[in-house]
């Protein structure tokens, strides 16, 4: 127990330090990286519901982020919606889409589920790419303005980052509540023992379907933050590479842990930033990292660190910070 609470203390301290780091560094460059990491973290946490807690590996999750961003872009640019009312519509659209796609994908389990989600994800990419009268096709949709919030202009990087911290905290808290709720627990049950859960009277399919919709909802939230940050959306954001990138975040960080996707998002976003500064071979590196993580570190960074901390802590009880 002591160790567990120590690990929690260490995690919370590290999290606060990490959130404060971009502000301490001060330059807009770092603050913007911070915003990108938090958006990616919300996105990865949403996928973690499926991959980590539900045991359902989806390779089409970018479709929800992208669709949500496209809806916001289209409504604000072409139909005179405000950013916030457009966001509300976007979330509704994404939830309906997740309900339909979930019902289709959950006809399969395991690798079949994975294949169907991949195919459905590529459909949305196809629509964004080919329906160019509406979506702008390969040109994407530029010039979506960042909204004001309570009279504050969010174009200022620090303010935008503050809003992202608040949004991230809400998502994190929501995730914590979800995994400890009855629904979250039965989802984890259906991951480990679907037959027994069915025997015990849980509606396995329904639990998975609801989880699929919740995951879609949070990906939609990430999509709104994404379009707010970039002000631009391109079909690539819905594509296979983006779906794989977010899956890499979840797996690299540690699927099925609360903070795993956050760590994974940080690693992937920072890696991408650093690599892109020197070479343009991000996709190659993404692929190789994927292979390396799956073969060398299949459980992810966070469970690995946790194990390491647990093995260090009893020996060094007095200097609890040693592991950090």
């Amino acid at each position: 127990m002591t160790n567990t609470s120590r690990i929690t203390t260490i995690s919370v301290t590290l999290l606060i330090l990490a959130l404060a780091a971009p502000l301490l560094l001060g330059q807009p460059f770092y603050i913007n990286i911070g915003s990108q990491v938090l958006i990616a973290a919300i996105f990865a946490m949403s996928l973690n519901i499926l991959v980590g807690y539900g045991g359902m590996t989806s390779i089409g999750h970018a479709a929800y982020l992208g669709t949500s961003a496209y809806v916001v872009a289209l409504l604000t640019l072409q139909h005179g919606f405000s950013f916030y009312s457009a966001s509300a519509v976007a979330l509704l659209v994404v939830v309906i889409m997740a309900a339909i796609f979930g019902a289709i994908a959950l006809r399969g389990t395991g690798i079949t589920f994975l294949m169907i989600t991949l195919a459905l994800g590529q459909t949305m990419w196809g629509v964004a790419f080919r329906w160019s009268d509406v979506t702008g096709g390969d040109n994407g949709l530029p010039d979506i303005k960042r909204p004001d919030l309570f009279g504050l202009n969010l174009v200022e990087p620090g303010l935008f980052y503050a809003v992202m911290i608040a949004l991230f905290m809400v998502a994190l808290a929501g995730m914590w509540i979800f995994i400890h709720s009855g629904l979250g627990l039965s989802l984890q049950g259906t991951r480990d023992q679907p037959r027994r859960m069915g025997m015990l009277g849980h509606h396995v399919w329904l639990v998975r379907w609801i989880a699929f919709i919740i995951a879609g909802f949070w990906a939609g939230v990430a999509g709104i933050a994404f379009i707010g940050y970039h002000g631009y959306i391109h079909p690539l954001s819905l594509g296979l590479a983006n779906s794989a990138e977010v899956l890499l975040m979840v797996i690299a960080g540690g699927a099925g842990t609360l903070l795993g996707p956050v760590v994974g998002a940080t690693i992937v976003v920072v890696l991408k930033m650093v690599v892109s500064a020197y070479v343009s071979r991000w996709v190659l590196l993404l692929g190789c990292t994927f292979v390396a993580i799956v073969i060398l570190l299949p459980e992810g960074v966070v469970p690995g660190l946790e194990r390491l901390l647990k093995s260090i802590l009893p020996a060094a009880r007095d200097d609890g910070e040693a592991g950090s």
Binding site: L114, L286, G287, F290, V294, I295, P298
Partner: peptide
Amino acid sequence: NRTLAQVLVTLGLAFAIADI
């Protein structure tokens, strides 16, 4: 015997091959 890991490796390789 680790099907999911195998599938993910092939996904990673797909990106590597495409970029090469």
